[in-house]
């Protein structure tokens, strides 16, 4: 009897709470938005590259990007037309550049894209000054996380932040791997150098609230403007291949707009479903493009390498050491 009563009770309760609790399609036309031109552009001392594409509607579920290979794209310097950008013929994905062009640091450049019947778009940016990595040191440490301990290489990179400006940065790294092969043409061993980006992580407060585990670490000088600052970044031991000899770090100086774009993009991609289900507001991605989507950013970088100890037993290290001699 008790069990029967329990079953009746639960049936009433559960049917009330769940069976009829439902999903319902709202008979509302979802507004179909006109397609817009999307700019993904970057200017650096090496030149300028801009990729043009079209935005997607909600119902474009394949996410197949429609690149614009016949856009009219003009580069302006301080509001004066400087050059018509040409499409890179080795790339069929709407990539444009200016041949034999070396941009100037600190000068404002504007890109305007026109493609009928879409609304023209434009965006401006500049190349920031480089900031050097003064020193790099490193040590190995054991890190404990829930249920695990593991070895990491921790690096301290010291930078001297300029006082006059707000500065935005990201740090990237590559492991430098030397290899050699027998060159049949030269009939001797030949050394090659390859580089590979490695995931960085950090508990340094300067990266708090930024992307914390990626191939680049974003940060700003908000808390140390005009001061020397030592930045701690770490790399899991397992991330190194056995042939790693050097680590090369890149300190990118980037424009504020580019920083905001990279940061918000990373945050949108990182936002997990649990948070969304519990009502967390979605992340809006920053854009400095007028009448369209995307970004036009400026960057500059400096590098510094450090040779890792403890690789003496690596046979390749011995060969390289010999060559260096």
């Amino acid at each position: 009897m008790k069990t029967t009563l329990r079953i009746i009770y639960l049936a009433i309760l559960l049917s009330a709470m769940t069976n009829q609790a439902c999903r319902k399609i709202i008979p509302t036309d979802i507004e179909t938005k006109d397609k817009k031109i999307v700019m993904n552009g970057l200017i650096s001392p090496s030149g300028i590259e801009v990729r043009a594409s079209l935005s997607l509607g909600l119902n474009d579920i394949s996410n197949a990007i429609e690149y614009i290979n016949d856009a009219e794209m003009v580069l302006y310097k301080n509001d004066e037309a400087l050059a018509v950008m040409v499409r890179n013929k080795f790339d069929d994905k709407g990539l444009y550049y200016v041949p034999y062009f070396t941009p100037e640091i600190g000068v404002e450049y504007t890109v305007k894209i026109e493609k009928s019947p879409y609304q023209s778009i434009s965006a401006s940016s500049y190349i920031p000054e480089t900031v050097k990595i003064d020193t790099i040191t490193y040590f190995k440490e054991t890190v404990a996380e829930i249920g695990y301990t593991f070895l990491v290489y921790s690096f301290y990179l010291t930078i001297d932040d300029p006082k006059e400006t707000e500065n935005y940065y990201f740090i990237a790294d590559t492991s430098v791997v030397y290899d050699y092969y027998y060159d049949t043409y030269l009939e001797k061993d030949t050394m090659v150098q390859t580089q590979q980006a490695i995931y960085l992580q950090s508990t340094d407060p300067v990266f708090e609230g930024e992307t914390e585990y990626a191939e680049y670490l974003l940060f700003s000088d908000e808390t140390f403007n005009g001061q020397k600052r030592s930045l701690k970044v770490s790399i899991d031991e397992w991330a190194f291949s056995g042939d790693t000899i050097d680590m090369k770090f890149y300190l990118y100086s980037i424009t504020k707009e580019y920083y905001l774009f990279l940061k918000s993009r990373a945050l949108q991609l990182q936002q997990d479903e649990i948070s969304r289900l519990l009502g967390a507001t979605p992340v809006q991605i920053f854009s400095n493009v007028e009448n369209g989507f995307g970004y036009f950013g400026g960057q500059n970088y400096s590098t510094k390498s450090i040779e890792l100890d403890g690789m003496e037993n690596n046979s390749k290290y011995k060969n390289i050491a010999k060559r260096k001699e």
Partner: peptide
């Protein structure tokens, strides 16, 4: 209600 390519 819209999407686009960010990066490249």
């Amino acid at each position: 209600l819209e999407k686009y390519m960010a990066g490249g």
